[in-house]
């Protein structure tokens, strides 16, 4: 397994180098830092979403779920839409990006935690009920968003639409640093949980027998997931296009591929493998989009397309197994 991880890391380095160097037009002194910022954003987002998905799939014991069922993306777009609705697109542009980032991260994290604490009390920690409530909540948020969008001025609606998709075309270095400051410690904590996650993956009774309290582990993992997804989404926008489908396909693709490339249930392998796979997907995809297809399609649309097919494949395969 260690060899495969090294191979994945090598592929990531190669893809990153390709992204940095191919099709250079203009001065290197401008290009390198400019591209490095975007590359940094992609690596950070790829890692955060993949790791969050691994954690989420472990605590829900479900391979086809991703954290976006909790309605994170929907909340992000709702916040943006309400701001544009209230202050107009000029007012929106006047808000410092750092403030907007802070609002988004706190909002999304609080939403996730609120949902969780409410359900812990009501449903005795029933994970499936939590997920189902998250889906319904996501639908509610999306409906409110759509309602608001119907009332906005069409030109301002186009502002909302342009920020409703993840974009790596322009990255604010301040935000990038802020996101790293939030997510790197969280990723470290997730890595420290790796052995406990292995045990939690066995199910409630065996985990309890081995001295791990499932409810506590699930709560801790959920806090980490909320922070990771919130920070990544606040940096680049939602990775599931059009306000999010039933699943965030990016995380789904990354973890499904990681399971194929490094077939193991051990989180000491799975976490880095999913993170590397996610980064490779993003960087390679963005290179193709930017350099060869002239940005004619947003990357998220392609991810949705591939992810949708993969989602169906996983469903059918599970049925047969």
């Amino acid at each position: 397994m260690a060899k495969r991880l090294i191979a994945l890391a090598a592929v990531l380095v190669a893809v990153s180098a390709l992204y940095m160097l191919v099709d250079a037009q203009g001065a290197w002194s401008f290009l390198l830092p400019f591209r490095a910022q975007k590359l940094g954003a992609m690596l950070l987002v790829g890692t955060c979403l993949s790791v969050a998905t691994v954690l989420f799939q472990t605590i829900t014991a479900n391979r086809i779920l991703t954290p976006s069922v909790m309605g994170f993306d929907a909340l992000y777009i709702l916040v943006l839409t309400s701001v544009v609705h209230l202050f107009g697109s000029a007012g929106f542009a006047a808000i410092p990006s750092v403030v907007l980032f802070a609002i988004n991260v706190t909002g999304m994290t609080l939403l996730g935690l609120l949902l969780f604490t409410l359900l812990r009390r009501g449903a005795r920690g029933d994970m499936m009920r939590l997920v189902l409530t998250g889906i319904i909540l996501g639908i509610l948020l999306r409906s409110i968003t759509e309602f608001l969008q119907r009332m906005i001025d069409p030109s301002e609606f186009s502002v909302v639409q342009s920020i409703s998709f993840a974009r790596f075309t322009s990255v604010d270095p301040k935000l990038l640093a802020l996101t790293a400051a939030v997510t790197v410690p969280v990723l470290w904590l997730a890595w420290r949980m790796r052995a406990r996650l292995d045990v939690l993956g066995l199910g409630e009774v065996p985990a309890t027998g081995l001295g791990e309290r499932p409810a506590r582990g699930q709560a801790q993992a959920l806090v980490l997931i909320c922070l990771l997804v919130a920070a990544a989404t606040a940096l680049v926008g939602p990775m599931s296009g059009g306000g999010g489908g039933p699943a965030n396909f990016f995380g789904l693709i990354a973890t499904a591929l990681a399971h194929v490339l490094t077939p193991t249930e051990r989180h000491s392998t799975l976490i880095p493998s999913a993170a590397l796979t996610g980064c490779i997907l993003l960087v390679a995809g963005q290179t193709v989009m930017e350099r060869f297809l002239d940005l004619s399609t947003p990357l998220t649309v392609v991810i949705e397309l591939i992810g949708g097919l993969l989602f169906l494949f996983l469903l059918v395969k599970r049925r047969r197994a």
Binding site: A61, N62, G201, L202, V205, P206, L210, G211
Partner: peptide, 19 residues
């Protein structure tokens, strides 16, 4: 929980493991 796990092992009714 950890101390207890060194003294007492339990075996579930169901041996289904999703992993």
């Amino acid at each position: 929980d950890r101390d207890l796990a060194k003294v007492l092992a339990i075996m579930a009714q169901s041996t289904h493991v999703s992993a």
